[in-house]
C-alpha cells in the first residue's frame, strides 16, 4: 500500500460501522433519513452503511416511538419496545393486528391478524380498552398531532382479579417542518402497575421533549422528566378515567414547568453565562482604554518588575 492510500482511512470496517451507528442514533427527532443520506455520502461504502443502518434504525425507531400507517390506511401502528413481537413485527392492540415493518424505510409493509396468544385475555383487554378510549380522547384534546397506544406488558394472560398486571400508555407528538428548519417531539411513557394485594395502581411517567432549530445554526432543546403517582384499583371504566386524569395533571404541570424554564432564561439562567449589559450598565469604553493601560503600567511599576 502506498502512503497515499493509508491516509484515506485507517479505520477498520467494524469501527466505521460503530461511528455510523453513533451518528444515526444521535439524529434528532424526524431527522434520521437526512443524517443517513449524509453519512452514506461520507462513507462511500454500501456494505458498511447497510450493516450500520440495519442495526441503528430499529433502535432509533423504537426510542423515538415512530408511528407508521397501515398500507391500507385503515389505521396506524407505533413502533416501541412494548409492543414488539419480533424485530420487524409490532402489535396494534386497537385493531388486533400485527404490522410488518421495514425499519430502514420507516414504513409498514403489511399486516396480519394477531394470534390469540399475542393478545391479552378478555379480562385484561377490558382495562386496556377502557384506558385506550380515555387516553385517545385526552390526546385528541391536547395534542394537535398526537398519537397514543396502550399495551399490556405484564400479566396479559391474567383471567380474573387476584393477580398483578401492568399496562403501559404511550403518547407521542412529533412535528417535522424542515422547510422552517424546525423539528420536535414530545414522548411520554406511563407505566401502570396494577397491584392486586394492595388494590392500587402505581403510576410511573417518563417524559421527554426535544426540539431542533437549525436555520444558520444548530440549537436543540433536550428536556427530561420523571414522575410518580398512584390510585386505587376500580372497575375498568372508572380506572381509565382516574388514570387519564393523573396523566393529564402531570403532563399539564410539566408543560407549565417548561414554560417557566423558558421565561427564566433571559434574566436568570442566561445571565449566568453572559450579561446583556456590563455590570456598569453602559457599553464598554473602548475609546478610553488608555486609562486601563495606564493603570496597568502603574501596577507594573509598583510591582517588582519594571515595565522597561
Amino acid at each position: 500500500m502506498s502512503d497515499d492510500d493509508e491516509t484515506v482511512s485507517h479505520l477498520t470496517d467494524k469501527q466505521k460501522i460503530e461511528i455510523t451507528k453513533w451518528f444515526l442514533l444521535n439524529s434528532p427527532a424526524g431527522e434520521i433519513q437526512y443524517v443517513a443520506k449524509d453519512i452514506r455520502a461520507i462513507l462511500k461504502n454500501e456494505m458498511v452503511y447497510r450493516t450500520a443502518a440495519a442495526e441503528a434504525f430499529p433502535l432509533y425507531n423504537k426510542s423515538h416511538m415512530i408511528c407508521l400507517e397501515f398500507p391500507d390506511r385503515s389505521g396506524e401502528v407505533m413502533v416501541t419496545t412494548f409492543n414488539e413481537i419480533d424485530e420487524n413485527e409490532y402489535l396494534d392492540p386497537r385493531t388486533a393486528q400485527v404490522a410488518m415493518v421495514d425499519h430502514v424505510k420507516q414504513v409498514c409493509e403489511d399486516t396480519r391478524p394477531a394470534n390469540d396468544e399475542e393478545l391479552p385475555s378478555s379480562y385484561i383487554e377490558e382495562y386496556r380498552f377502557a384506558l385506550d378510549a380515555e387516553i385517545m380522547k385526552y390526546v385528541s384534546e391536547v395534542y394537535p398531532k398526537g398519537v397514543c397506544s396502550v399495551y399490556c406488558v405484564n400479566g396479559k394472560d391474567v383471567e380474573e382479579p387476584g393477580s398483578d398486571f401492568e399496562l403501559v400508555v404511550i403518547i407521542c407528538a412529533a412535528r417535522h417542518s424542515p422547510q422552517n428548519f424546525c423539528n420536535g417531539s414530545w414522548r411520554s411513557i406511563w407505566n401502570m402497575e396494577f397491584k392486586d394485594e394492595l388494590q392500587t395502581v402505581e403510576v410511573r411517567g417518563k417524559l421527554k421533549v426535544g426540539a431542533h432549530y437549525f436555520e444558520e445554526g444548530n440549537v436543540q432543546l433536550d428536556a427530561n422528566h420523571e414522575c410518580k403517582d398512584s390510585t386505587i384499583i376500580q372497575p375498568p371504566d372508572d380506572c381509565a378515567v382516574s388514570l387519564t386524569n393523573i396523566i393529564r395533571h402531570h403532563e399539564t404541570e410539566y408543560l407549565n414547568s417548561l414554560q417557566t424554564s423558558y421565561s427564566n432564561l433571559p434574566d436568570t439562567t442566561f445571565k449566568d453565562l453572559r450579561r446583556k449589559l456590563p455590570v456598569t450598565r453602559t457599553l464598554f469604553p473602548w475609546h478610553n482604554t488608555m486609562q486601563f493601560s495606564l493603570t496597568r503600567d502603574i501596577q507594573k511599576n509598583l510591582g517588582l518588575e519594571n515595565s522597561k
Binding site: 412535528r175 423539528n183 403532563e251 417548561l258
Partner: peptide, 19 residues
C-alpha cells in the same frame, strides 16, 4: 435568546399548546 431558544419554545407549544 430571542430567535433560537424562542423557536424551540414555539415548537414545544406547537406539539402541546398551553391550555
Amino acid at each position: 435568546d430571542q430567535v433560537y431558544f424562542g423557536k424551540t419554545k414555539e415548537m414545544v407549544c406547537t406539539l402541546r399548546p398551553p391550555s
